[in-house]
Amino acid sequence: MARIFKEDGVDRTARAPGVGDVAVISGHRVGEPERTGEILEVLGEPGHLHYRVRWDDGHQSLFHPGSDATIRHSTHRASPKAKR
């Protein structure tokens, strides 16, 4: 089972999000599916991290997570290529 890392720092014992992990945005409305995407690149500084993400629908974007976003660690995470 994947661990969930809260970007807002709730789980500070978890390792930082990295390439290959999965960004998860939960739906705010009943029936709204969560959106997930693979992290391709980690950008920014600790506390202001953002990510280049390939979403399930195929599009890529620079994703800046809010307080409701979570990172699901991949069990087969790619080798780190994060830019810091």
């Binding site: 993400v53 890529q60 974007s61 994703f63």
Partner: peptide, 13 residues
């Protein structure tokens, strides 16, 4: 402004 608001957002090139 978006960062200060701490909301989720994407920039799509």
């Amino acid at each position: 402004q978006l960062e200060r608001a701490s909301i989720a957002y994407e920039l799509i090139g």
